Computed example of a mutant assay.
Amino acid sequence: MIEPLRLLIEDYEEEAVKFFSNILSRIGLTPLRPLKSLLLSTLILSILDSKRWSWHIFSLESVVKETWRFISHVGDMDDIALFKDLDLLETAIEDTEKLIRLSDIDRTNFVDTIRFFAMFLSSVKTDELRDFYSFSSRLRAFVMDKLSIMLSEEAYKHKARYFGQLVVLDREQSYRISQMSLLCFPIVDLRTSDTYLYLLGKVLKIWNNPPLSKFHCPMDPSVIRVGVRIGLFSKKFKTSRHGGFRYRIFQNIARDIFPNDPTKLYVLRYIGETLCKSHKQLCEGCPFFGICKYYIMSEEV
């Protein structure tokens, strides 16, 4: 099964990347936009996308709309200084449909993450962000020198293990440095950081020669759903929390199939968003139907 699956995924990767590119372009996120705007606005979208179930946003369509509502109410997305303003961010949340319902702790962590990341972007030159290795280095420096001081005592305790890992990471481990640095921000989890780096590195292609073999595939529920149905993952993955043991298994599977670029497995999300939805499956139009256990079993019934 693995070899046919690998070939099918590679056949559809370009189509999947184009799909996500079109999603980003709907809120003005294209390679033509200023780099700092892309870095900040893509982070906001990645947060909402990774939290879409727990925050009751649900669909990717709703994620896009809610991201735009929030950003547009803050003001010009190219004006990074606006996103450092606590009052503006709080007011913008009041004009949304979903974010306004956040718990106090989620709301605070969301706003603080945006403010702190905008501060990071304001503290560096644009040219220092164009190279992935430079981006990871500058981000780690900001996190260790400034973010560690700005976080509340409670927030720092919650993120302390990531700060600890940043201390020991070798500078050549640029993906892990970027990932761990992002995880130090209050609202960011592994799915957020992996989605963010995927969108920037593979879809928007803002960096020259990013180390794709070291990238992690975002462990999105749609990827898991399709993976379980075709028999790539066990059903236990459906109920697993993001992170921990199953996260490592997931990344190992992605790397075993695509050692040069594990993020190719994210094509399964494209299939999940367009054909293999949770309550509506268009099996006969799916390129994976020939190797899909779910389809074969439904045909036998």
Rank of each mutant, 00 (worst) to 15 (best):
L166W: 00
V168Q: 03
D170A: 04
D170T: 01
R171E: 01
R171G: 00
R171W: 00
R171Q: 00
E172A: 00
Q173G: 00
Q173E: 03
S174M: 12
S174Q: 10
S174K: 12
S174I: 00
Y175D: 04
R176D: 07
I177V: 10
S178R: 05
Q179I: 04
Q179R: 04
M180P: 05
L182T: 05
L183A: 06
L183N: 03
C184Q: 03
F185T: 12
P186H: 02
P186V: 00
V188I: 11
D189L: 10
D189V: 01
L190D: 04
L190H: 13
R191Q: 12
T192Y: 05
S193I: 02
D194P: 04
T195S: 07
Y196K: 01
Y198N: 12
Y198K: 03
L199E: 12
L199W: 02
L199K: 04
L200S: 14
G201Y: 15
G201V: 08
K205T: 10
I206P: 15
N208C: 07
N208A: 15
N209L: 14
P210F: 08
P211S: 03
L212D: 15
L212F: 15
L212S: 15
S213M: 13
K214T: 00
K214C: 01
K214Q: 03
F215W: 11
F215Q: 09
F215P: 12
F215N: 07
H216S: 10
C217Y: 09
P218I: 03
D220R: 04
S222W: 01
S222I: 05
S222Y: 13
V223D: 09
V223K: 11
V223A: 15
I224L: 06
I224H: 09
R225I: 02
V226E: 10
V228K: 15
R229W: 11
I230H: 13
I230E: 14
I230T: 06
G231P: 03
G231W: 14
L232Y: 11
L232N: 07
